[in-house]
């Protein structure tokens, strides 16, 4: 019986589903809500401070706020805290822009031992690269459609 046949696989899959420990869905959702909400709350605080200090409109304060939040995400990754936050926060830690920072900083740190060029720099985008690539590709498609076809 080297490789399972389709029918064997199906029967075994049913057995797996039956004995698979369930993810604690309700608990996960609550933690994702709390952690994600809390990060956005901090973001709002940062935004308000920037607006007040620099006298900027909410739109103008957007990019610097994102910059500060990315730095904070990077810092807490560096301190070794962010991966622990994500263990229970789940997507609540991954989805905010701080999670994007974590996705860039984590491989950068991981591969420091392979050197600054071939390690840190080359590997920096192993996780976050696909995010940037897809954001650019989809945005160009959407932008093209909405400004030429849409008009």
């Amino acid at each position: 019986m080297p490789k399972a046949t389709g029918r064997e696989t199906a029967a075994y899959q049913r057995m797996i589903v039956a004995s698979k420990p369930k993810r604690p869905l309700a608990e996960n959702l609550v933690w994702a809500f709390v952690v994600g909400g809390a990060i956005c709350l901090v973001g709002q605080g940062v935004k308000n401070i920037i607006m007040k200090a620099e006298g900027l409109t909410p739109t103008e304060a957007g990019p610097p706020t994102v910059g500060v939040m990315i730095f904070l995400g990077a810092l807490f990754t560096g301190l070794g805290v962010y991966d622990r936050l994500a263990r229970f926060g789940g997507m609540g830690a991954n989805l905010p822009i701080t999670g994007f920072a974590n996705a860039i900083v984590a491989p950068a740190m991981e591969y420091q031992r392979e050197g600054l060029v071939l390690g840190v720099s080359a590997r920096m985008f192993t996780v976050a690269g696909p995010v940037i690539v897809h954001a650019v590709v989809v945005a160009v498609i959407v932008g093209t459609l909405s400004h030429f076809v849409g008009k």
Partner: peptide, 23 residues
């Protein structure tokens, strides 16, 4: 439009990799 975020991300990635070691 996203230059600030991306630049900060790259700079902090570089910085953290120099300052901290993975635990």
């Amino acid at each position: 439009a996203t230059a600030v975020g991306l630049t900060v991300a790259i700079l902090s990635g570089y910085l953290m990799a120099i300052v901290f070691t993975p635990k």
